[in-house]
């Protein structure tokens, strides 16, 4: 217990942790603030103003249309030719603006809808927290290895695997706590925006349950990222190892493979891309459409689809997790500390 307590203190005393947390919290705060400034609730006054704006726009269009028709007829009277090409038959008099084209909705200010727009915001939150957790996790153990702190610790607690797993446990616990707290603040902030500056939408128990499940999937991604960062840095005994692998995976998977698949015209190439599985995990499934299969010039076509499910994602991500943890444990058990 004393080791866990010391590691919690160490984690939050570290500059990387503090700076990243501060930047993350400030960065995340920008999102709800931006929504507060942009969202306006749909009050009767706002709707009436939008209605009036729609009518004004319609009236302006009618005036402009009538002037155009009059100009066309005057030109016709002067004997000009080719007017049908410019104005249409009968000087376009049959195609005047219709009132129903100008709805109040077109002139309503943006209104945040909590029910519809909160789930995508959870994905953004999870992605940001996962990146931060990866870096903090990598640095937490990588800097310790690199600075000799790990060796010092092992001189005090010469049980390598329990020491490593205690550090990992502390990291996971801290990142889980962070995710829960930030997630709760995030939810409260967007709920308040929906409630006071927008629209909550129809919030049933099922909707809240869906939010909770999305949040849980997001939290799992954050913890996975923290664990992967920690384990990779521990295997390489340096923070740079984890960051290198992370950046390498992004470059190879998201850029290199995409370009390669495009060049060799691989069918459903996205199913070999890492981010596909992350999105599928978060959204429960992801549909990949093979547009190349259709020759749209020859007529309608229904392109074949490939569904990546969250179950497939969980197998892939779970395998990565097991490999990383096993690798880190094996490495600390077998390799000399020199």
């Amino acid at each position: 217990m004393s080791l866990a307590k010391a590691e919690v203190r160490r984690l939050f005393k570290r500059r990387v942790t503090r700076i990243f947390l501060a930047i993350t919290l400030i960065g995340l705060a920008i999102f709800p603030v931006a929504f507060v400034f942009n969202s306006k609730p749909s009050t009767p006054e706002v709707r009436a103003a939008a209605e009036a704006e729609a009518t004004r726009n319609f009236d302006q269009s009618v005036v402009q249309f009538q002037a155009m028709v009059a100009e066309c007829e005057a030109a016709k009277a002067r004997g000009e030719t080719g007017l049908d090409d410019r104005y249409g038959p009968n000087c376009g008099a049959d195609f005047g603006p219709q009132r129903e084209w100008y709805t109040a909705e077109q002139f309503m200010p943006y209104e945040f809808n909590f029910r519809d727009e909160f789930p995508p915001s959870l994905a953004v939150l999870a992605a940001i927290l996962a990146m931060v957790a990866f870096v903090i996790g990598a640095s937490f153990v990588g800097a310790e290895w690199n600075s000799g702190g790990m060796m010092n610790l092992l001189l005090w607690r010469p049980r390598r695997i329990p020491v490593l797993l205690t550090k990992l446990g502390v990291l996971i616990g801290a990142m889980f706590g962070l995710t829960v707290v930030v997630g709760a603040l995030w939810t409260a902030a967007f709920w308040a925006i929906g409630r006071y500056d927008g629209n909550l939408g129809k919030l049933t128990a099922g909707v809240w349950q869906s939010f909770a499940l999305s949040g849980a999937r997001g939290a799992a991604l954050v913890l996975l990222a923290a664990t992967l960062g920690f384990c990779l840095a521990s295997i390489g005994r340096h923070t740079a190892m984890a960051l290198g692998v992370g950046i390498g995976a992004i470059v190879i998977s998201e850029i290199g493979l995409r370009i390669l698949f495009e060049l060799v015209r691989v069918q459903f190439g996205d199913r070999w891309i890492l981010s596909t599985y992350l999105v599928a995990w978060f959204d429960k499934s992801l549909k990949i459409t093979n547009w190349r299969a259709c020759e749209l010039a020859t007529g309608p076509c229904t392109p074949p689809e490939y569904i990546v499910t969250w179950q497939q994602s969980s197998v892939l991500l779970g395998a990565a997790l097991v490999l990383a943890v096993f690798g880190a444990v094996w490495s600390i058990r077998r390799r000399d500390v020199i």
Binding site: K5, A6, E7, S147, M151
Partner: peptide, 29 residues
Amino acid sequence: ARRVGAIVESPQFFPNFSARDTLSLLADA
């Protein structure tokens, strides 16, 4: 281990912690 104090080779500590923090964390551990 509790009865053996050791320093091995060059002293290695996390550079951003103070001496008191460094020792305090070891004491905790």
